[in-house]
């Protein structure tokens, strides 16, 4: 029995180690290539023999990559904030006023799950053009200011909120916004933080909509900037890996700190 369980544990470790290596080695190789000296790019030594930042200085000198990272940060932060606010208001309404109409609207929310971005891209693109938001950061944020996913997640959170607390606030004469702001928000902070993480990561990594709206390097988010650079200088592997590393570092840094919380948020709410 004990030998069997030892074997089973070894098997677990072997499998999980393999899976970990599969997950991490490609990214390790990205960093190693980025840190190699330019004349050693094709080396197969598993670490940079003469570590150099030449690839990074090259990419920082040639492409406005810091600007792109800044754009991405702005877009992801504003999108997350907007989605949280619109979702809080809507989830509150759904949780608080229940009737035929609100149920129909709620059903309409779930339909968005079935609409691929590619199906609605042409009218969306035309609308962005008409609003003069092509190639602007506003054109990236405003169309994504509401997320059906966020509303549904927050609705589930609010449904579980203790009624007695709300009733007490109502007796005290608090209005809806006040209840939301001073009672509900402070009490669901962990859920809000988890949701914010998910929304931020998915906005940071969004590709399709920026692909549609972006034209210039100056207003590009990092995803599009990286693709632009790859299209121009596809086989400059050193600078390309340096750019990829820079694109990944911010989220990896956040992940290093909030790792447990991020994984938990994803596992609890699933994929967008």
């Amino acid at each position: 029995m004990r030998a069997e369980s030892l074997a089973a544990r070894l098997r677990s470790h072997a499998l999980l180690t393999t899976l970990s290596l599969v997950a991490i080695l490609p990214l390790y190789w990205m960093f190693v290539t980025a840190l190699r000296a330019p004349n050693e790019i094709f080396s197969t030594v598993p670490w940079p023999e003469n570590p150099s930042l030449a690839n990074f200085t090259y990419i920082l000198g040639g492409v406005p990559i810091l600007r792109m990272l800044w754009n991405t940060l702005v877009v992801a932060t504003l999108t997350t904030a907007a989605q949280l606010i619109t979702a809080l208001l809507a989830a509150y309404a759904f949780a608080r006023w229940k009737n035929r109409w609100s149920q129909a609207l709620f059903a309409l929310l779930t339909v968005t799950w079935l609409i691929p971005a590619q199906v609605v891209m042409v009218p969306g693109y035309l609308l962005v053009t008409r609003l003069d938001m092509l190639d602007t950061l506003a054109g990236l944020v405003i169309p994504h200011a509401a997320s059906a996913f966020a509303i549904i997640v927050l609705y589930q959170t609010l449904r579980a909120f203790p009624t007695e607390l709300i009733e007490a606030a109502v007796v005290d004469g608090a209005g809806h916004l006040r209840i939301l702001h001073s009672l509900i928000v402070p009490n669901i902070k962990p859920a809000l933080a988890s949701l914010a993480i998910l929304l931020f990561i998915s906005s940071w990594n969004d590709y399709f909509w920026p692909l549609l709206v972006t034209r210039s390097q100056e207003s590009a988010v990092i995803q599009i900037g990286l693709q632009m650079f790859m299209t121009q200088e596809g086989n400059q592997w050193g600078p390309l890996m340096a750019a990829s590393s820079l694109a990944s570092l911010p989220l990896l840094a956040v992940y290093l700190v909030l790792q447990k919380r991020i994984v938990d948020s994803f596992l609890r709410s699933g994929l967008k």
């Binding site: 490609p26 990214l27 940071w204 990286l226 990944s248």
Partner: peptide, 21 residues
């Protein structure tokens, strides 16, 4: 913690890195 990492890497980065690999 390690197994989850690919989830937070941007798809374009993933594409570029695999193109190199």
């Amino acid at each position: 913690a390690i197994i989850f990492v690919p989830m937070i890497i941007a798809p374009v980065v993933v594409a570029v890195v695999w193109r190199w690999l």
